[in-house]
Write a protein that binds this DNA or RNA. Structure first.
Lengths: 205, 205
DNA sequence: ACAAAAGTGTTAAAATTACACCCATGG
DNA sequence: CCATGGGTGTAATTTTAACACTTTTGT
């Protein structure tokens, strides 16, 4: 018995799938008990002296992913959340471009998760929704360097649940510093092609 | 050498001093090395299986205080923040009525603190400012069951740095659910007496 | 009467929302 | 030429902010 609780870092891995036009959540199929065979947020135990961001990177490595950026959300401290013993969970977000070996799931079609990870996801969603369009680095990572408004709409819908008015979303984008509309367009199949927005060169100088 | 970092819970203890009309921060004079003799945020090491809220209560007990309410802020993970070895710090807030054995300091006249506690205080201030008037339970704890507008003004000023317009603050208060103005007044010395606002019976049912 | 503190009224500016209508493309 | 998706324009509503002016008290 250790004198203190363990600390795990669990990551909400986000990846915007341009083909599916959907924000997807990266899950890791557990191989060990408890919850063997269950999908879970990728997580690791925080090592002595390790920074949370680095632990998150290790968690991503378990599914062969590297984060473009990450950040802290909330800490969950329910003592029985892990049957192996009391373990804090520092929830973090990370954005990636790759597929890795993760199991990718839509936000709403997500299967039941191991531990209290369902709760973590539900509690953290509004936090992420609040960061979209307001936190430039988070937003930039999700959208990538360039994106059509359609993708912006899908992102907004994925995180807030409701689809915003297209016109208003356009105006919102126009007010974001470092973001500007280009004269290029993206053909999406049927319908009028969407204007492409682009970030200025240096997002985090 | 333990396999994992320690976890401390450090508390920003808040107490509104009606006589001084000032929000004060409760500090604990350290007796042990490192930083013996320095003032610090009251903190304890999180025990195995202990909830953050309970650890915060233990920290307050070190200065003979009990919290009326508390909550989580951010987690600091800089590995060298504690010279004894890597220690996470989960910063929390707590509101109390008592004096206890704490050393109370105004927010701006506060002395240099031990560890990275100066940084914790500076980083957390805007978070607390954002909770004021928006988070009803936090607000209610700070103001108490009844309060004159003057106190509201002092609280706002302490957390945001700037004093708000009196008229606008009055209107802000009027929109807060569960809060209503009474027909009583508080004489504050010279000048026109201040209207007393009161919370409705059950704040957190 | 005057200064200090509190309160009211009014208005300007900004952000949020909603909705009607026009434009471009594929079938 | 029409359904589909994208964009612009406009207006109502709400929030935020600022400031002038009035009221009440102690000295």
């Amino acid at each position: 018995m250790e004198p203190t609780s363990h600390v795990s870092v669990d990551v909400l891995v986000l990846r915007y799938d341009r083909a599916l036009r959907q924000l997807r959540l990266g899950l890791h199929e557990r191989t060990l008990e408890p919850f063997a065979g269950w999908p879970a947020l990728p997580g690791v135990l925080l090592l002595r002296g390790e920074r949370i961001r680095d632990a998150a990177a290790r968690a991503l490595a378990k599914v062969q992913l590297t984060a473009r950026g990450s950040g802290q959300l909330i800490t969950f401290d329910e003592p029985s959340r892990d049957p192996r013993g009391p373990t804090l969970s520092v929830a973090t977000w990370a954005v990636t471009d790759d597929i890795g070996t993760a199991r990718w799931s839509g936000w709403d079609e997500r299967p039941p998760l191991a531990f209290d990870h369902d709760r973590i996801v539900t509690d953290c969603r509004p936090l992420l929704a609040g960061m979209l369009w307001r936190d430039p680095s988070f937003t930039r990572l999700l959208t990538g360097a360039e994106f059509p408004v359609t993708d912006a709409l899908a992102l907004h819908q994925a995180l807030t649940g409701a689809a915003p008015d297209r016109g208003n979303l356009n105006r919102t984008l126009a007010t974001i510093p470092g973001l500007h509309r280009t004269d290029r367009q993206a053909s999406t199949g049927r319908g009028r092609p969407s204007t492409i927005w682009a970030w200025s060169p240096s997002p985090t100088p």
